[in-house]
Structures are given as C-alpha cells and as structure tokens.
Write a protein that binds this DNA or RNA. Structure first.
Lengths: 342, 342
DNA sequence: CTGAAAGCGCTTACAG
DNA sequence: CTGAAAGCGCTTACAG
C-alpha cells in the first residue's frame, strides 16, 4: 500500500479520492466519475480506477460527498417504538425498498414522546435528509414548523389524512375501530368495553370508531372505557381486565386497542376461571403472531404493517426523484380476523 | 428573515454559519465557537449569536462539520434482527446512553446475513463513525478486515470472547445452554431434546452447552437435536414439536433455543392434548414477556438485554474518549427462571 | 470521454 | 476572548 500523498496537517489519514486518482493516473474528478457514474467513462479507465480503489482500500467520504453535492442520500425514519412489533415490520418494509439504493436510513425511536420527536428530528435535519418518513398524522407545532422550514419531502405512515393535503400511507384507524365494534355488536354483545393503553393518536382514533358504533346502537357508556397512558403490555392487559370488571361487572365483551392487552386480559381470565368467549368475549388489534396460536385464538384486526413501510418508502422515493405520483393518500385497508376469543 | 448573503452558484439555499455570524456581527469562527463551546465565549457575544441562530432558523450542516473536524459523531450499530425483542431491548439500552451526547445512531439490520452485514458495514464506514457496536463475536473475514483497516473502536454484544482480546459485553451463551440442560437433568429428565432455529452463533453455542451437559450424563443422542435454519417463530415451534415427537417419541423434555419456539411448542401440545410439563417438559430462552403469563408459565433463561446495550454503549463511549477501561470483557450473567412448564 | 478550477459549510491551528 | 486564513474530501459546472 503506497502512500502517495503524505497525510499532513488536518488530513484524516485515510485514503482519498486524489490518491486513488493519482495511482490510476487520472484526474480526481475522473476518478469520481468512474466510481459514481461508471457508464460515463471508458472501460479501460474505469478498470484502472477500480483497481486503484481495491489496492488502496479506498472508502469514499460521505460527508465530503454530501457537502459537495448538497445531497445526503440520507432518509430519516421516525417511529414511536421499536419494542412494538408493528413498527419493526414497518421498518422491514422500508428497508426492502431503500436498501437497494445506497440510501442511508436514520432510524429514530421517539418513544411516543413529542419532545423526543422534536429532538430527533432536529438532529436528523442537520444531516439534510433527502426525505423523511413519519409515524402518525399529528405532530407538535415545533415539528410541523421544522418540517415546513426544511422543505424536505415527508410521507406519514399508519393512518390517513383527513384533508388530502399531506402524503400518507396507511389505513383508517377510525374505521378499523368502528368495524371491530360493529362485529361485536352484530354478535349480540351489548356491554362492550374498550381497553386503551399508551393513548397515542392511533389508539384514540380506534376509540373514536368504537364510540361511534356504540352511539349508533344507543349503547355508549363512558364507564365502559378503561384508558391509561402506560405502554401497552401483556402485564397491563392483565391488570386492566381486573379494572374493567370492577368498574363494569356486567361487561360482556372487551375491545382491546392492542393484541398485547388482549393477550394479558385472556391470561388473566384463565387465572380467574372466566371462560373466553363464553363469559366474556375479548378481541385485540394488529394480529401479532401469538394471536393465531393462543388458546383461545384471538379475534383481532390484521394490519398491513410491512406494506405500509414498503409503500411509504416507495412513495417517498418517487417524491425525492420528483416523479409525479398518482395520489397523496394510499389506503392499504385492514382485515378483521374472526377467531375463537370473540 | 433577511438573506444576508445571496445564495448563488452551488449553494444549498440554506442558512449558513456565515450568515448567522454576519447578523450577529462576528466572525464565522466565533459564531462556530459560540455554538459548539459556548463557555469559551463572552456572554454578550453568545447571546447575540444565539439570537441570530433563532431568528434565521439556522440548522448546522453536519456534513460540513464532519468534514472539517474529521469527527462524525456517528455511532454505527449492527443487529441481526429488529423483529426479535431481544435486540430491540439492546437498542433501547444503547439509546439511553448515547442519545444524551448528540451522537447520531446508525441502526443496521443485518437479518442474520453475512452479506448484509458486509454491505451495511461498508456503507456505514463511509460515514467514518466514531465507534461501532456489533452483535456476536464471529464475523466474515471481509468484515474483520474492514474493521481492522478502519481502526475504529468496536464493542461486541451478546456473548463473550474466548480470547480476552476484543471488547465484549454479554454473557456466556454456552454456559447458559449448559445451565438450562443441567436443570432439566437434575429434575430427572433423561431424553432431553434440543430445538434450534436460525442457527446463528448464539443458538449454536447454547446447543454446545446442551451437548456438554448431556455428554457428562452419558445421555447424548444426536436424534434428540432438531435444528433448522429458518427464523425462530411461534409457528415454527409448533411445527418442530411435531417433528421432535416423530423422531424421538420418548422425549421427556425439550430445551428450545428461544422463547418463541417454546411458546409454539406449548401451543401445539395443547392442541394435541399433551400436558406440559407432566407428559413433556418444555423450556425456552430469553424470557420474553409472554413467558411469565402463559398457561403454563414458561421456564426459561432471563437475559440482560437492556443492560448489554447500556454497558456496551458506555464502554464504547469510554473507548472513543480514550479513557482507560478496567476490562475488555463485561460478563452480565443470566438467570434461570424456573416456572411451570419445566 | 477527460480535466483544471472553484466551491460546498464548517473547524482547526495559529495569532493577537 | 476574538479573528483571518487555510483546508477537510469530495462534486459541480464549464471547457475542450
């Protein structure tokens, strides 16, 4: 490995494009082209550059490229949780689209916190991302303002916008909540409880759908709503089942805003000797893997997480490339999985 | 918002430090200092700069900073999966250490693939990260060589090194596999099966621990090992239970390399009317949340995922700051959770 | 198809 | 405590 240009002063000590070019006997910018746009360079020259790259172990400096080209090749993704399987599947969909394109994904976990979202977005904006993928439709004014000022393409995931302005890929959380409740009503249940955790916007929209269905049947009763802001877990579901039964002992069905909660509620019923669905029907949301396998298997709403990520990333890429996109909203729908528990 | 310096030519059109400096009536580098090292600047000047930043909505350009300072403030993390709760908890631990420091986390999902790991590492190296967090102790020669050439501090997570050379934070996967098997043997089980999926290095080490314990008791039998390279899921556990029983019908206990598998195996037993643990004992690994709640509750090994991330990130940060660290290996141990299923 | 020059937006020595 | 100059490692127009 020959050091063609001695690193001095503030040099990083790493191999630079100039050194590659020198070894290949071409100008820097020709070496640059041979690497970035190999088709625009003669074959022999390309080969000489490639060889120099290999011999020197050249690693392009992304910061320098970003600075010179005013293009970062970075895409920022903000999700509210990584422990929730829903969002890891969304990420898988995103990766499958973007990994191919030498994009660098900045994955941020906001932990359902506006403050954390503002902070992460602020940091990510310093990288001048080509595009941004956000979870949910509502954000703090500060976030809205930063996005506005940045002029960077944004696609929202997991829900749909009420006004058709913003780009969004998902399904109607409201509609899904409504659908599940109607299913329960159609099965003859009257005292249907709603169990909500986290109280993020998606949970709240599902709750609204639930309320609409209950109201339509003249069955709305605030006492049937058990809502807490703690994160959704199996343990919480077990606890809330107890709370629901003490507040509304005559409750004959429970719509859990999340499968975790439903699993916990069902386990708790098993411990208390309450049979599901005979004494009480229990259903969840999202169709996590265990729902199909548990005894009783869990009635739930299957949501297209992977496809949300996949389509959102595809849409964002089109936006970045300034292609014309057919629509701002992509509704991927949802599926009610009627199983044993309700 | 006054445009002090007209963006022309190749300018990005964004507010620059020079514009902030001009508005504050100071030199660029003074503005730079006021932002990065506020304590080294007079109060009045700092205030003027802060005001200019706020008024102009200045966002520092991270690429320029990285290029000028030869320091990226980036830390790359490579995990084999994001759908596995184990690694999302590791990430939570990492975030809790690093988020405070304005570090930018590059989270890469290698999907248990060497090729993917090489690719991601290659991309991340272009960002010249200050440090790298890796999962596991064994990597492809190409990865080893890239790491070697980069001279960047690396900390490995989830296991311990056999030679004390590399920096590692985790616990002995081998020892954990041995411990679980001994527990089963001590309970009187003789025909203990091992169910392995994914076949990543951690699974293989647990299997080795299992084999050692079986061998010590003169009970080793290759037919008791059901190993497949598919990802570990509940569905796979259900399927492998059937396979195990057809290969070794007299099997009286099964050590699943993962809780997912154990859950699936237990559900399958329920469907077939096999009682756990009376007819067959089943245990898992990792202590996922459902294990404590299922009926029967699942005997498993609780692993310190969050702390692995936390301590690994702390160690890496110390390495980056060139602090002296007391040891290269941090053994966080594991805990056997004896519950109902075995 | 190839190249000499300028510049991206910051920070690092070095002075004073 | 503050600043004028140089430079980090690339790519972008612009020529030829």
């Amino acid at each position: 490995m020959t050091k063609i240009q001695t690193a001095k002063g503030r040099a990083s000590g790493k191999i630079t494009l100039a050194e590659v070019a020198a070894r290949a006997g071409v100008a820097s910018m020709t070496a640059s082209r041979a690497i970035s746009q190999p088709e625009r360079v003669s074959a022999s020259l390309r080969q000489r550059v490639e060889q120099a790259v290999a011999e020197l172990g050249y690693v392009p400096n992304r910061a320098a490229r970003a600075l010179a080209s005013a293009q970062s090749n970075v895409i920022a993704v903000l999700v509210p949780s990584l422990s929730n399987a829903v969002f890891t599947e969304v990420l898988a969909g995103i990766q499958d689209v973007l990994d191919a394109d030498n994009y660098q994904l900045l994955i941020g976990n906001t932990r359902y916190s506006d403050a954390e979202e503002e902070k992460l977005l602020g940091i990510y904006l310093q990288s001048n991302p080509d595009g941004i993928l956000l979870s949910g439709m509502t954000h703090s004014p500060r976030v809205e303002q930063m996005l506005q000022a940045s002029q960077i393409p944004v696609v929202s995931m997991m829900d749909l916008a009420e006004t058709g302005q913003a780009f969004a890929v998902g399904f109607s959380q409201f509609q899904a909540g409504y659908t599940m409740t109607r299913y329960l009503l159609d099965k003859g249940h009257r005292r249907i409880g709603f169990m909500g955790a986290q109280l993020d916007e998606r949970t709240l929209k599902r709750a609204e759908g639930y309320r609409k269905a209950m109201r339509e049947s003249g069955l709305e009763d605030k006492r049937l709503e058990v809502m807490v802001s703690d994160p959704s877990t199996i343990a919480l579901g077990a606890e809330l089942l107890g709370r629901m039964l003490s507040v509304a002992p005559d409750c004959d069905a429970i719509f859990c805003c999340n499968d975790d909660l439903a699993h916990g509620a069902i386990y708790q019923c098993q411990r208390r000797g309450i049979t599901v669905p005979d004494q009480i029907a229990i259903c969840g949301f999202n169709d996590l893997p265990a729902s199909a396998w548990m005894k009783p298997s869990v009635t739930t709403i299957s949501t297209p997480r992977y496809r949300v990520g996949f389509e959102a990333a595809s849409l964002l890429r089109a936006l970045i490339r300034k292609e014309t996109v057919p629509q701002t909203q992509i509704d991927l729908g949802f599926t009610l999985m009627a199983r044993e528990s309700a």
